[in-house]
Amino acid sequence: MKKLLASFIRLFEPKEREERFQSSDSIVTEGPARRTILQYLAGAMSGVFAFLYIPKLFVKDLLNQHSTGKVQLPKWGMVIDLDKCTTCGGCVVSCRAENNVPIAGADQADKARMIFWMDILVEQEGEYPDIKMRGMPTPCNHCENAPCVKVCPVGATYISEEGIVAQIWARCIGCRYCTTACPYTRRYFNWEAPQWSEEYKNQLNPDVATRPKGVVEKCTFCHHRIRKIREQAKIEGQALTDENFRYLPACAQACPAKAITFGDLNNPNSEVSRLKKSPRAFHLQEELGTNPKVTYLRSAKWKE
């Protein structure tokens, strides 16, 4: 080892190197030192520039992902009628079952580590007996101007061509910037490896990937259901109408009050487009300009 190092060091022996060059050409007497420094510097700087410019190359790829086809793609949206909703929690459990959302357990629940893709948000005001309270189911709002998408450093979350704010589990590095940036706190992090007992593993839905520890997960508008129904229809040559999608996501399907409606916002005749025009319609935190694709209906507006 020592000898090896010795010989390696010899390469940089200044005297010898200078002698070497002196013997061949006396003009470059002081060249080597300068050149080496310059070379090293140039190398370092080019490294720096590579660092700066490599990501830029990916912008091209990024733009390609949003291919602009001629066919108008649907833009999925959801309308939740709070006058109908009784906050029974059917949507919450249905979502859990459909999307393999892990159970936190008593200890982790105490530490506020629970994951709900669909959660019920509660607000309360007033004193007995003039109390007012409201519960509202809140999935990911799938904002058109999503604060979470802008901040993801690796493109693990993006807005799909059909308007779904998607999370690609396999790319997520778990920096939790998106969870922090989301003004609705509708993104969840796998603090620990999700645990299923051997028996509960039977229940896992094969259409939805399970998430490993350390990644962020969120509502997907049950896009696997959309894909499934669409493939089925395409192969069987059927046309899909708004009816097929109206109660498609697991939460909408489960809702006993049918308070959740789903559909294509680009289709002016769809139920969601119709409901969205209702005077009762409002969005959560409209003033932030996130432009959510989840619309709420309520006769008296929810105080924010």
């Binding site: 660092f51 700066l52 490599i54 990501p55 830029k56 990916f58 912008v59 990024l62 802008k150 901040v151 993801c152 450093p153 690796v154 493109g155 693990a156 790319r171 997520c172 590095i173 778990g174 920096c175 939790r176 910037y177 992090f189 796998n190 490993p212 520890k213 350390g214 990644v215 962020v216």
Partner: peptide, 25 residues
């Protein structure tokens, strides 16, 4: 990071919109 093993994704799939990438640069 939740997934330190994937830290190279920042270079592989970096997105310029993210302030974290500005930081990295």
């Amino acid at each position: 990071l939740g997934r330190p093993d994937r830290v190279m994704n920042v270079l592989k799939h970096g997105r310029l919109q993210s302030p974290i990438l500005w930081d990295v640069c």
